[in-house]
Amino acid sequence: MNIELITFFIFSTLLIFTCIKVITSSNPVLSAINLVFSFFLSAVLWLLLGAEFLSIILILVYVGAVMVLFLFVVMMLDINIAKKTAAYIKYLPLGIAVFIAFNILIIYFFINTFENIDYNAVKNIEIISDSNTQNLGYLLFTKYIIEFEIAGLILLLGIISAIVLTYRKNPKNKYQNPTKQISASKKDRLKIITDLKE
């Protein structure tokens, strides 16, 4: 029993526990906090797998940005936390049954498929240094540059759509409409009045 395995077991147990807490706690704030914990824990596990950059990103971006966003929404929405535990308990056996069935099936699959896997199937990757971050950056900016750009566009899209969806015009605000200003013609403004004396 080496230290690696012990770490894995401790953190995975905690991870499962926090995940369960995420879906069971009745208070969304608690759920969000537990989600943050689960992200932290999985970041540790990713470190074990040698994905240093991604584990840092997970904490920075997820915990720092996305989860904060969640918390903000929870606070903004003024949700009354009504406890509907009756329905919850009613459906719990079904949930557990599905959980077990699905787990058994997928685990059975994974064991069957990956038990005798050839770990050296893919080895022709270009490694420029020992650092995971350097390697990843190299790969991102050479081979996957187009995908990287598209990812940026997707983020931009996310920003725009989030703004468009939530943006509300305040009727009290006074503002100019440039389109209308440009399309105004002479006839709308000028009125030629002929000699009134006639």
Binding site: Y91, L94, V98, A101, F109
Partner: peptide, 23 residues
């Protein structure tokens, strides 16, 4: 939504069962 998702999951389970049976 939860009814729909339950349906999807059940279908997935059945699919897995079929594949598992075939293997």
């Amino acid at each position: 939504i939860y009814h729909y998702s339950l349906t999807i999951i059940s279908a997935l389970i059945i699919l897995l069962l079929i594949i598992g049976y075939k293997n």
